[in-house]
Design a protein around this nucleic acid. Sequence first.
DNA 1: TGCAGTGTTGCTTC
DNA 2: CGAAGCAACACTGC
Length: 289
Amino acid sequence: MPELPEVETTVKDLNKKVLGRTFIDIWSDFKKQVKKPKNFEQFKKEIKGRKIEKVRRKGKNILFDLSDSKTLLIHQKLTGHLLVGYWILDNGYWRPKVKGPLEEKINTFIHLLFTFDNGQMLALSDLRKFAKIELWDRKNLKKELSSLGPEPLVKDFTFQKFKDVLTGKKGKIKQILMNQEVIAGIGNIYSDEILFEARIHPLKEVPNLNKDEFKEIFRAIKKILKKAVKLRGESISDFRDIGGRRGFFDEYRKVYRKEGQKCSRCGAIIKKIKIAGRSAHFCSKCQKL
DNA sequence: TGCAGTGTTGCTTC
DNA sequence: CGAAGCAACACTGC
């Protein structure tokens, strides 16, 4: 499940690989994944001939700025992967032309594939088919994404700003951290890891946090997300970079899906509970309620 | 074998 | 208005 660090890794790699490329063709076997324009032929017509000027990230959204002020938005949701390479259509499945990590079974789930002017391809692999693809006029996109909260890794996301966005919020800290309208980009894995780093219990009510606890959470957000970006994301779920390679955050992961194991800090057993229908992992001894 | 668990977003319901 | 539940989908693990 791609969260901020995984999307950031993807976007950085895409900027190295596909900048200046022009779309010449699009293939799909699941056309309703393209939500805007709804008509796939229309989408195809509008994409063809357009050039990629820049790739950006907003929260968990990937934005391809194209020529003529269009922007292609891709949200990977749970199991979407963007892959760059060369494939051949074989019996309804895309097979990679060259040996390597792209040969893993994520290939089976390619439902959308763009071909560029140099023969290179951009594939969207998506097991659960939840990913969303939309083509926007750039001027309308800002409004569309305006409900997203601030980007946690930018310099001007200061402690003051963090306090401001949390002030007045009711609810459990875990839920608030995952709310994209409060802060953009944090999902289930990193909210667990951030709260472990900050030694705060996921069920802690936001209005009950004192200043020191706010400070710890703020510090932990920056630390964990920066670390995860540096390590090119996780791969306990099925994240892969655009070359099909894993991230390295798993070696650093302390609580997510570690229930029953010993806490690396105090040796107590890591617990798993449900919060608003989501799994939450934490150490009940060193994370304070 | 069968069914709960998996996570993100948005829509529906209360 | 907000919170909770569920659907979108398909595969894994118990």
